[in-house]
């Protein structure tokens, strides 16, 4: 018989807080929610904020705390609005669910509430106003380095890992406020490099582009030699580095450069923004990076912004 793999959860799931009070950093959210849970007058809620900041974790924890493990299954319905099957399904499912809840109410006098909605999204601006205005809104912020560090230290302790101060600060900074990413990097580094993990190990699992690639492209743009820049662009693509990542690292180099005028910086950054949007639309990575490099070269070498033909 084929060997069967025993399953256990990746660390991100293993270390998902079960209680609202254990959700790190989102103090304001946690305070209001704990309050709500104590008084049990729970409004509809809308959670928004970037990935890996605790939205789903909090919603699940509230539901668990409200109902406990036994009732949870019958009283919580999880829907994925973007796999909607049209609004119809959402509607009928919720109706059925409300009916169940109604039936429950008759038998269990203590539960007087019918249905509460928790909405979760990344971008508040994409939620229609009538929906947003019916909810208590909670913003989940990217986690600060301190908070990340304390959660990571907790996990290191549980798993018997050893991170020095430099490694810890690297891990927080490369994860950019996304705790899920930090935990995944940590687990991968632990598997690859054993229990003593250095800053370099973390960078190598994170997919951050080594600074020399960014510098090489920047230098090629400075040189004014188009073919050289094209060669560097080809190299970045062949190495498989994500161009969106290249844009953000290039952006850091430009902003910090002290030998550039504000106008030069503005010209370069405007183009970076436009090209980033094109990537989101699905445009080709090579062509966008090449266009950005050409534009950067023209700005650095004080060539005209307008094309001549």
């Amino acid at each position: 018989m084929a060997p069967v793999m025993q399953s256990s959860q990746p660390w991100v799931e293993k270390y998902r807080p079960k209680q609202v009070k254990d959700v790190a950093h989102q103090d304001e959210v946690v305070r209001v929610l704990t309050n709500t849970l104590e008084t049990t007058s729970c409004p509809h809620m809308l959670f928004y904020g970037p990935p890996g900041t605790g939205k789903t974790t909090t919603a699940l924890a509230i539901a668990h705390q409200l109902f406990g493990p036994e009732l949870y299954k019958s009283r919580v319905l999880e829907l994925n609005a973007s796999d909607d099957r049209g609004i119809n399904v959402v509607r009928t499912k919720i109706k059925d669910f409300a009916a169940v809840a109604n039936a429950l109410r008759r038998t269990m006098e203590t539960y007087s509430k019918v249905t509460r909605f928790f909405f979760i999204c990344n971008y508040i601006s994409r939620i229609i106003e009538p929906l947003a205005s019916r909810c208590a809104k909670f913003r989940f912020k990217p986690l600060s380095e301190e908070i990340m560090t304390s959660r990571i230290l907790y996990i290191c302790n549980e798993e018997g890992l050893n991170l020095d101060a430099e490694a810890l600060s690297t891990l927080s900074s490369i994860s950019q406020g996304d705790l899920r990413r930090a935990i995944t990097y940590l687990q991968s580094a632990a598997r690859l490099f054993g229990s003593s993990i250095s800053s370099k190990d973390l960078i190598s699992v994170s997919g951050v582009i080594p600074q020399e690639f960014v510098e090489a492209l920047f230098a090629a743009c400075k040189s004014g030699n188009f073919d050289l820049a094209n060669k560097e662009v080809n190299n970045v693509i062949a190495e498989g580095y994500p161009v969106s990542q290249m844009f953000s690292q290039l952006f850091d180099v430009i902003v910090e450069a002290d030998d550039l005028s504000d106008e030069q910086k503005a010209r370069i950054c405007r183009k970076l923004g436009e090209a980033d949007k094109c990537l989101v639309d699905g445009a080709d990575e090579y062509l966008q990076l090449l266009d950005v490099s050409g534009n950067t070269m023209r700005a650095l070498c004080n060539m005209s912004e307008e094309f001549s033909y």
Binding site: G52, R180, L279
Partner: peptide, 30 residues
């Protein structure tokens, strides 16, 4: 995630949403 592990494969990771990338260990094959 306990029942089913995903292995995703693509050429251009800029086209994969940040939320998906955050849920995976990213393996770059140059």
């Amino acid at each position: 995630s306990a029942y089913c592990r995903l292995i995703l494969c693509c050429n251009s990771s800029s086209k994969v949403s940040e939320a998906i990338r955050s849920r995976c260990l990213n393996v770059r094959i140059n």
